[in-house]
Design a protein around this nucleic acid. Structure first.
Ligand SMILES: [Mn+2]
Ligand SMILES: [Mn+2]
Ligand SMILES: [Mn+2]
Ligand SMILES: [Mn+2]
Lengths: 216, 216
DNA sequence: CTAATAAGTTAGGTTAAACTAACAATATTA
DNA sequence: TAATATTGTTAGTTTAACCTAACTTATTAG
């Protein structure tokens, strides 16, 4: 398992996300057409996304994003949208160029720059009111604990769990604001060993998936 | 021959340019250290740059940029500089992040966006007076005729030749403002067949290198 | 002026992301 | 329901960009 997504793979995620807004079932062929690649290339990419737990799919079946895939796709969508908006509204670049540039820059720009860009757009009142920009900031600056590499240090920003799972995590002492370090990750990403408040914990993947970390 | 440079290859060019400012001889080892890659990777990249007529080098000898390599490197240098300046001065991003982001964005940003960015920096008086920004605009929006793909259409922006060569080109009817189309390019990029003012011309590589085209 | 050190090259691999061509499974439609 | 069309997979290649290990050529220091 690698812990970062290449630009090419990110574009697959983005397209799947887009397609699933409109059509109920996302199919290999649709993705191939949208990205202008061969079907076989899509099959391969989907296998990779599946291995990273970003999509769900069985043989010959349709593709759906996992919780994690949804999150990563949403990050990309917002980066794209915000960069494109900046290019159009601040730099006055043509819509077509803005789209193309945004879809390339989104893969290489840092979180720090994205947050600064949001600040600029906010200060000029260029942001639509229908997006919760505070939520977007958190989305962009956090990662699910379930896809962090061993050794990563960070701070718990939020525990996105309810009911039994939330209670269990609270009991273990997993709370917002705590410093955390990923100790070890088993081959398939399950279980994950972490350190919080000096204690060593072992989490299942679904537990880790609910914990949002701000890497530092 | 391919007609575009990948981000990786562009970074090699940029580093060679940088190193040749300070040291008189640019060596494989220096480039390897700067880019954090193995010497053998540099050897390979240099071969590629040589095939594209961007660097000059003989076995075990030092590396120098060709006229064309110099031009491409300068483009990159200015893109880097301007994007980095924007990130620091307009977005107030830290110097370190600005450097890193600039060195990634420079490879994917369009000319249109770069020109718009320059306009923004100009309007805010953020540009140093020691750079001739009008020259930079021309640099960024043109390509040497010697590295355009067959089929490319454009306009002659400038003929950077003096003496005999200039006279010869003028005689053939190659003048600024003319529309041009690249018809055929021989295997090693020499000679190049073009159409200007309805006439078919055949140019040697060194002649074509002096002609700057704005692609349209 | 040799011997050690440094620099550069070559050979052989690996990984990601494409591709084409051939085939298998599923859906559609007559 | 059988034939046809569409969709998805598999196998085998290709290209770019890296790598390590082994080797060759140049440089430098005694
Ligand atoms: Mn993209
Ligand atoms: Mn995009
Ligand atoms: Mn760069
Ligand atoms: Mn750079």
């Amino acid at each position: 398992m690698t812990y970062s997504l290449t630009p090419a793979i990110q574009d697959y995620l983005e397209v799947i996300h887009d397609l699933s807004k409109h059509d109920s079932k996302v199919r290999i062929t649709d993705i191939a057409r949208k990205l202008n690649v061969a079907k076989s290339s899509v099959t391969e990419a989907i296998e990779l996304l599946h291995a990273k737990n970003l999509v769900q799919k069985e043989r010959y079946g349709p593709i759906t994003l996992t919780r994690n895939g949804e999150r990563e796709a949403a990050k990309l969508k917002y980066k794209h949208l915000l960069i494109s908006k900046f290019l159009r509204d601040v730099l006055n670049v043509t819509a077509d160029t803005a789209e193309k540039d945004a879809c390339l820059i989104e893969h290489v720009v840092s979180v720090e720059t994205m947050l600064a860009l949001i600040q600029l757009l906010e200060s000029k009142n260029y942001l639509d009111n229908d997006i919760d920009i505070e939520e977007v900031k958190i989305l962009l600056s956090t990662n699910s604990l379930s896809n962090l590499a061993p050794g990563t240090k960070g701070t718990i920003k939020r525990v996105e769990a309810t009911g039994e799972l939330r209670r269990r995590l609270m009991e273990m002492g997993v709370t917002s604001g705590d410093d955390i370090q990923v100790k070890r990750v088993a081959p398939m990403g399950d279980p994950i060993e972490i350190t919080v408040k000096g204690y060593n914990l072992t989490l299942r993947k679904n537990e880790a998936a609910a914990i949002l970390i701000e890497i530092n």
